[in-house]
C-alpha cells in the first residue's frame, strides 16, 4: 500500500525535473547575468545603470502606459461583460465566441492591421479625405500605443469578468432592489463585490502583457519612444548586452511581483486566477 502511493507520487517526478531544469535554472541565469559583467565578474553596474534618468523615464512611461491601458480596458470591459452576462445563455455563448475569435488571429497581424488603418495615408484618413476632411495624425503617438494595448488585450479583461458575473444570481439583484437599493447602490453593494476576483484577474492579465510589450510600441509608437520591452529586446537582439538586458528583466519581474502582491491583498483567498 505504502509502496503504491510512493509510485503514484513518483509520477510528478518528470515534471519536477523539467521545472528545475527549464524554469528554476533559467531564472537563476537572469540573476547571474544581471549581477555580472561580460567577463563574468560580479558587478552592480548593470543595476546602477538602470537608475539613470533615461532608464527611469522608460520604466515610468511603461508603467504609466500599462496602467492607462488597463484602466481603459476595465472601463470598456465591465459594462460589456455585464451586458453579455444578462443575455440568454445561447446568446452569451455566441458573444463569448465573438470575443475570443480575434484572439485566434496572430496579434502581430492584428497590430499591423491597426497600423494600416490609422497611418497618415491609411484607411481612416483615406475615408476622411474622401469627405474632404483634413487627415488626422494618429500613428506614432502615445494614444496609438495605448489603443493597440487596449485592442489586443481587451478579451483578457472581458472573459474573467464575464465568468464571475454569469454566476451572479439574478435573485440577489431583485432582493437588493426589494430591500430598497437604487440600481446604483445595487451595483456597488452587490454586483461589484461579487465580481472582484474577475476584475483582479482581468487586471493582471492585461497589465502584465501591456507593461512588457515591444511589438505594439514598435509598430504603433514608431521609434519616437521606448518601453521596457523595447529596451530589453534591443539588448538581446541588436546590442548584445545580455547583462544589462538581464538586469532590466529582473527589475521588470520585480515590478510585476510587487503589483501582483498589492492586487492579491484586495482579492479574496480563492480569486487569484479565474479564466
Amino acid at each position: 500500500m505504502q509502496n503504491r502511493s510512493f509510485m503514484a507520487r513518483l509520477m510528478a517526478a518528470p515534471h519536477v525535473v523539467w521545472s528545475i531544469l527549464f524554469i528554476v535554472a533559467p531564472m537563476l541565469f537572469v540573476f547571474y547575468y544581471a549581477f555580472t559583467d561580460s567577463q563574468g565578474n560580479f558587478t552592480m553596474s548593470n543595476i546602477s545603470e538602470l537608475a539613470s534618468p533615461s532608464y527611469l523615464t522608460i520604466f515610468a512611461r511603461s508603467g504609466a502606459f500599462a496602467l492607462v491601458a488597463t484602466a481603459i480596458c476595465l472601463l470598456i470591459a465591465y459594462p460589456l461583460a455585464y451586458a453579455i452576462s444578462r443575455a440568454n445563455p445561447k446568446r452569451q455563448k455566441i458573444y463569448i465566441m465573438l470575443i475570443m475569435l480575434p484572439m485566434w488571429m496572430n496579434f502581430l497581424i492584428r497590430t499591423y492591421s491597426i497600423m494600416a488603418i490609422i497611418e497618415d495615408t491609411g484607411f481612416v484618413n483615406n475615408i476622411l479625405g474622401y469627405f474632404g476632411i483634413e487627415p488626422i495624425h494618429m500613428i506614432n503617438t502615445d494614444g496609438a500605443v495605448i489603443f493597440g494595448m487596449v485592442y489586443n488585450y481587451l478579451p483578457y479583461m472581458v472573459l474573467p469578468i464575464h465568468t464571475v458575473l454569469s454566476k451572479l444570481d439574478n435573485r440577489l439583484l431583485e432582493a437588493a432592489a426589494d430591500l430598497g437599493c437604487t440600481p446604483v447602490q445595487t451595483f456597488f453593494k452587490v454586483v461589484m463585490p461579487h465580481s472582484r476576483s474577475g476584475i483582479i484577474s482581468g487586471i493582471t492579465m492585461v497589465f502584465v502583457p501591456s507593461v512588457s510589450t515591444f511589438y505594439i510600441s514598435q509598430k504603433l509608437g514608431g521609434s519616437s519612444f521606448d518601453l521596457i520591452g523595447d529596451t530589453i529586446e534591443r539588448q538581446f537582439q541588436t546590442a548584445y548586452n545580455y547583462n544589462l538586458g538581464a538586469a532590466m528583466s529582473l527589475v521588470l519581474m520585480i515590478i510585476i511581483l510587487v503589483s501582483m502582491a498589492i492586487m492579491n491583498r484586495y482579492s479574496d483567498d480563492e480569486g487569484s486566477v479565474v479564466v
Partner: peptide, 9 residues
C-alpha cells in the same frame, strides 16, 4: 511572468 522574461531567461 511576462513572456519576454520567460523567453530571455
Amino acid at each position: 511572468n511576462p513572456d519576454i522574461v520567460t523567453g530571455i531567461s
